[in-house]
Simulated assay, not measured.
Amino acid sequence: MEKMKLKLLYSDLRPELEIIEKELEQAVDSSSHLLNDASLHLLQAGGKRIRPVFVLLAGKFGNYNIDVMKQVAVPLELIHMASLVHDDVIDDSEIRRGQPTVKAQWNNNVAMYTGDFILARALEHITEIDMPSIHHILSKTMIEVCRGEIIQIEDKYKLDQNLRSYLRRIKRKTALLISSSCELGALVSGTDEKTAAHLRRFGYFIGMSFQIIDDILDFTASDEELGKPAGSDFMNGNITLPVLCARKDPAIYAVLKANLKQDLSDDARVEIVEMIRNSPAVGEAKMMSERYLHKALKELSYLPKSAANRTMRNIAFFIGKRKF
């Protein structure tokens, strides 16, 4: 339901998104039946396609041409898909979006090579753009995304990590790729540098808000809504903002500390989720997400009023208020 509401906000882009979806299917096509099946399994599991949407909307501020825009939108979504496959291996995740992950459906080896294949396809597609600045921004983004994955591994089970570590991690994990989607969409459509900079910052701020809300929903949404067990982040050792806020309560801290690195029963998992959900931590985390949301909206206020500007604003509000 929530995903349907989101899609209604950018329904005007449906014809272009259908083109991108077909391009994605072609991109993951392989002579290997195994690679083909695993890649399609991931693609057909769906997704919000937020990154391609922001590429297209940013392009509306310049000389919009779908044949050019798709050359950026497709590789950015492929990079995101590849990171998801690798994430599921690292976190030993069995379910994503209510479907078995590639590693669960096949195995870790197939998942890793599928992620590598999808990433290689992204690099192949981006070569169609003859703009060195685009390649420079994208390569820097990919390096930072990889650094973010390593930092996440290093920070696992560190209940005493500081807020700065968390923010640095989600910046690289989520915000930078959304930021690049906005910036590259602007640049490839020929906008001026000032417009591209505002869109880049909008993408960064909304990406931070998006990830914080994701981390909140891991405790406030149901298993069915999430398409995976609530509290999965904590069970996988990923210390997110709600946990960082909740640990200030000595009683909650003691429970969290005692259950880290434990093979939790379903009842124990639900108990921890309820404890976080009913604490002030959720409200504190939402306030931080709101601050990033307001910063994102401020960046849009510097840009010309248009249908694209309005749609970006509506998506930003949706991201900041979504329930799952």
Results as ranks from 00 to 15, higher is better:
Leu57Ala: 03
Ser30Leu: 01
Val85Glu: 14
Met69Asn: 09
Ser301Asp: 01
Lys7Thr: 07
Ala27Met: 08
Trp106Tyr: 15
Ala221Ile: 03
Pro229Gly: 07
Arg164Asn: 14
Leu9Pro: 04
Lys228Phe: 02
Arg269Val: 02
Leu9Glu: 06
Ala221Glu: 07
Lys173Pro: 09
Glu25Leu: 06
Lys257Cys: 08
Leu217Pro: 13
Thr101Gln: 04
Arg164Met: 12
Ala104Thr: 07
Tyr204Glu: 12
Phe324His: 00
Asp218Met: 15
Leu159Asn: 02
Met69Arg: 05
Val53Asp: 14
Lys3Val: 05
Glu25Val: 01
Asp249Leu: 01
Ser265His: 00
Leu9Trp: 03
Asn108Ala: 10
Ile151Val: 09
Met312Val: 00
Lys173Val: 11
Asp12Pro: 12
Glu193Pro: 04
Lys60Met: 14
Val28Gln: 07
Arg168Val: 03
Leu177Met: 14
Ile19Ala: 06
Ile50Ser: 03
Leu78Asp: 11
Phe317Asp: 00
Lys22Tyr: 05
Asp37Phe: 02
Lys228His: 04
Glu21Val: 02
Glu225Ile: 01
Cys245Gly: 03
Lys305Met: 01
Gly207Gln: 05
Val243Phe: 04
Val72Trp: 06
His125Asp: 08
Ser209Leu: 06
Gln152Ala: 07
Ile212Thr: 04
Pro132Lys: 13
Asp214Leu: 03
Lys257Arg: 10
Cys146Thr: 11
Arg49Ala: 09
Ala175Ile: 00
His33Asp: 15
Leu35Asp: 05
Ala296Met: 00
Ile216Tyr: 14
Tyr113Thr: 15
Pro75Phe: 07
Leu159Phe: 01
Arg169Gln: 12
Arg313Trp: 03
Leu297Ala: 02
Ser232Ile: 01
Lys286Glu: 15
Lys261Glu: 13
Gly62Asn: 10
Met288Gly: 06
Ile315Val: 15
Gly320Asp: 01
Gly227Trp: 11
Ile178Asp: 08
Lys194His: 08
Arg269Thr: 04
Ser189Thr: 04
Ile213Tyr: 05
Gly185Ser: 10
Ala197Phe: 06
Leu187His: 11
Met131Gln: 11
